[in-house]
Computed example of a mutant assay.
Amino acid sequence: MQIPHAVGHIPAHIHTAGVDLVDLCRWQRAVQRCGDALAQRYFTAHERRTAQERATDDRSFAEVLGHLFGVKESVVKAVGGLPPTARLADISVGIPYDEGDREPWPVRLSGPLARWAEAEQVEVVGSSVRIEDGLVLSWAAARTPGAPS
């Protein structure tokens, strides 16, 4: 298995990090089984719109959500677990418009996760890439704000 170069752009000045693998076949079955309820529970309205806009013949709406889900799960691991009152929709992942962009994706936190980031004085970034047919590698890192990528 060869990991694409885009994953290699993990930022400097890392405070903490998390990694996740998403099996797209399982993820797509979950999206089909649960439909809008799953998307609304885990993703912000902006993320759902972005996933619809980025869906193509080669990359389905469910696959785009799978990449976002992987980054969200990576954030949960980076912060040491989801606080009791937090939910995955408190993590908003920004996907760049240019798929060739190798910069980390911005991650905006709200609720208890935002309070954690403020207390730790960090910002969170992440990324996700398909590494094999049906397998996605995602990561998230909390870094010193303004640190070079």
Results as ranks from 00 to 15, higher is better:
residue 5 H to R: 15
residue 6 A to P: 10
residue 8 G to L: 09
residue 10 I to P: 03
residue 11 P to S: 06
residue 12 A to Q: 09
residue 12 A to L: 10
residue 14 I to H: 07
residue 16 T to L: 10
residue 17 A to D: 08
residue 17 A to Y: 10
residue 19 V to W: 06
residue 21 L to E: 03
residue 24 L to D: 02
residue 26 R to Y: 05
residue 30 A to K: 00
residue 31 V to F: 01
residue 31 V to H: 00
residue 34 C to F: 11
residue 37 A to T: 11
residue 38 L to C: 01
residue 40 Q to E: 15
residue 44 T to F: 01
residue 47 E to D: 06
residue 50 T to N: 11
residue 50 T to V: 14
residue 54 R to P: 05
residue 57 D to Y: 10
residue 58 D to I: 12
residue 61 F to C: 08
residue 65 L to F: 00
residue 67 H to T: 03
residue 70 G to Q: 01
residue 71 V to R: 04
residue 73 E to F: 08
residue 74 S to W: 02
residue 74 S to A: 11
residue 76 V to C: 13
residue 79 V to F: 11
residue 79 V to L: 14
residue 83 P to V: 07
residue 88 L to W: 01
residue 89 A to T: 08
residue 89 A to M: 07
residue 93 V to R: 05
residue 93 V to I: 15
residue 96 P to F: 10
residue 98 D to T: 02
residue 100 G to I: 05
residue 101 D to N: 08
residue 103 E to N: 14
residue 105 W to F: 13
residue 106 P to W: 05
residue 106 P to F: 06
residue 108 R to C: 15
residue 113 L to Q: 00
residue 113 L to G: 02
residue 116 W to R: 03
residue 117 A to P: 02
residue 118 E to W: 09
residue 118 E to V: 11
residue 120 E to N: 12
residue 122 V to M: 00
residue 126 G to W: 03
residue 128 S to V: 07
residue 128 S to D: 02
residue 132 E to Y: 09
residue 133 D to Y: 05
residue 134 G to K: 00
residue 134 G to C: 03
residue 143 R to L: 05
residue 145 P to W: 04
